[in-house]
Design a protein around this nucleic acid. Structure first.
Lengths: 245, 245
DNA sequence: TCGCCTCGTCAAACCAGGTTTAAGCGCGAC
DNA sequence: GTCGCGCTTAAACCTGGTTTGACGAGGCGA
């Protein structure tokens, strides 16, 4: 069975070796892929969520609004990410999912987790580990929001993005394409569009970054890592305790 | 086998029915309980974590510091909570764990998750669900930190605490014991001790709360729920998709 | 092709929520 | 008794938010 048949296999085989029976299970639960245009909401807060998705291409984000319109972007999703996990436990979605640009998703039904849990302890452990690692990342973001100033937050965000993009794209260097508006960056970091603009200008003046349209180049990465006490949570996952099969 | 033999059984049987084989597994992995005095660090950032804990009594919290000393309290732990999950995926602890008051913990080794995953898909699914529900709670906190002002954050924190205490203690009314200093509340909510003091006074003047030593009574709960768009994530967990055994 | 509209970015003036620092007070521990 | 800790209060300060408006680029219809 060829690996490229399935987004899920692609994603999960990054972490552990999958034998043929694993691959058969995973391939069988995946529906056919779906495409969505830019700036589209795929599901809303409160929707009944039946499917999880693996991102095949494009950027998306999840957000929640307060009743008065204040918005918090909760997570930015890239190719390879699995979407919808936080809602598995809760029946109704707690966030709205929105595309940044045209995207392609591979859906699979939430109920098929049941199959995975029955058939493969090893895959189950991997799924738990991915969820727990995401939780650690949320804790890092929380610290940034609670205790960092605007420049540190933006630095942290850039470092996090580049670390994540390096997982799947090993030829990533120090330049990333950032297809978010400054308003969206602000909604992610708890700032306003105006202040994001001002801070980015300031960082460019001070030689931390260089910008060219959508693209941001990180010039003093080591310094930014030190200033934000950044830790790459994506590089090392502890798979040593996983069951055999 | 009596339920009270194990903290873990107590905790997990809140969510699903456990048959005798489940209980035997769980009871077998639990070590003997340990006590710690108030204001003690149980483990530090970077420690190798071999054990998870169930809290039997007392309050604790997990925190991380920035290099310059700014502190972020990440999570407040109560009796019934399982500690250490976020570190399962990562080998080294990402937070420091500190007692607020004298506590009693029931440790069990991280490696015994392996056994659970091999033996019981149903328990595995429950553990995943608990982890994912925690993730949703982190997202709620994130939104509070990113987009709420001081009074809303404190209101949110009180509502969250009371909702969590109501899980295990159904006779909870509208008054909670809050054994945290105002500095710790600030470290949790991204504020300073001074501003926490001022805001609590203000909330008392305005009739939102009443205070008496450690105890806080919530007077206008419905209003606070509306103002913070609070959702109780603890009351309803979706266990419908769990495997049979 | 022109002109119009929208959206994103940037600027400037003004404002406010939260911080910093410091001092006084009450209370429990030693 | 006094030492230390936590809470309160006050004053100066500042980071970051709000508002408004200008400018430029891209998309689109006439």
């Amino acid at each position: 069975m060829p690996d490229r048949a399935s987004c899920l296999i692609d994603k999960l085989s990054h972490y552990i070796h999958l034998d043929d029976s694993h691959k058969q299970h995973l391939a069988s639960i995946e529906k056919s892929e779906r495409s969505y245009p830019a700036s589209t909401e795929i599901h809303q807060v409160g929707d009944l969520t039946r499917d999880l998705y693996v991102v095949k291409s494009g950027w998306l984000f999840s957000y929640t609004d307060l009743p008065d319109g204040r918005r918090q972007i909760v997570k930015i999703h890239h190719p390879g990410d699995i979407l919808g996990f936080p809602d598995v436990a809760l029946r109704h979605s707690t966030t709205t999912l929105r595309t940044v640009e045209a995207v392609c998703l591979c859906p699979f039904p939430k109920t098929s987790l049941d199959v995975i849990f029955r058939e493969s302890p090893r895959l189950s452990a991997l799924i738990l580990s991915i969820a727990l690692r995401d939780q650690v990342v949320f804790i890092d973001v929380l610290r940034a929001m609670g205790r960092m100033n605007a420049q540190e937050r933006i630095g942290y965000m850039l470092l996090d993005l580049i670390a994540r993009l390096r997982i799947t794209n090993s030829k990533m260097t120090d330049t990333i394409r950032l297809p978010l508006t400054q308003g969206q960056i602000g909604d992610y970091l708890g700032l306003t569009n105006v202040y994001v603009s001002r801070t980015l200008l300031r960082m460019e003046e001070d030689g931390y970054i260089r910008r060219d349209g959508n693209h941001v180049q990180i010039l003093r990465e080591d310094e930014m890592i030190a200033a934000t006490d950044f830790h790459d949570r994506y590089a090392d996952m502890d798979v040593s305790w996983f069951p055999e099969h």
